[in-house]
């Protein structure tokens, strides 16, 4: 996945056939990595208002997740935004909202697959043995990180970490 041009409100990427397949496959893996429930309060003895807000949060995140999965499918199947280029792979055109949505979706997969792997602390040097059980989660983690890094660098105009 390579950035071709960057202008206000519009990013254009070139995806090789392999990039395109890998991105689609990664996005479609999302149901395999459901996220852990998220809490609105750090204190288990949160007040009544916060307990009520937790239900709102759960519902809002579930709705957002459903809408995002559908929007990603629409994006990747919309020839105006993701079109095959004869002889040069695919061209992906993202406006600001599409870029944010794709960034969120990739990070959701990255964090979900990381949780599936047992939430290892790689920064602290924790090593993960590859086996048949965790292979898919590790693959999804690394692919989503790669696409996320490229997208984020394009969005911010900075170099990748």
């Amino acid at each position: 996945m390579k950035l071709l041009s960057r202008e206000p409100g519009k990013l254009v990427f070139r995806l090789s056939k392999r990039d395109h397949e890998a991105l689609l496959t990664t996005l479609r893996l999302r149901p395999l990595f459901p996220r852990r429930p998220r809490s609105i309060a750090s204190d288990a003895d949160a007040d009544q208002n916060l307990r009520a807000a937790q239900k709102d949060l759960d519902a809002a995140l579930e709705q957002h997740r459903t809408e995002q999965v559908s929007a990603m499918e629409t994006l990747m199947n919309d020839e105006a935004r993701c079109a095959v280029q004869p002889g040069s792979g695919w061209r992906l055109i993202l406006n600001d909202a599409d870029a944010e949505m794709l960034l969120q979706a990739l990070n959701e997969i990255r964090v979900g697959s990381w949780e599936k792997l047992g939430a290892p602390d790689f920064e602290a040097g924790q090593h993960l043995e590859l086996d048949q059980e965790n292979f898919l989660a590790l693959w999804a983690f690394q692919l989503s990180e790669m696409f996320q890094g490229t997208l984020l660098a394009a969005m911010t105009g900075e170099t990748e970490e």
Binding site: R35, A41, A53, D56
Partner: peptide, 13 residues
């Protein structure tokens, strides 16, 4: 809500 949509660990108190 917004921060959690981005998968950050956010809470309020």
């Amino acid at each position: 809500h917004q921060l959690q949509k981005y998968s950050l660990q956010a809470t309020m108190e």
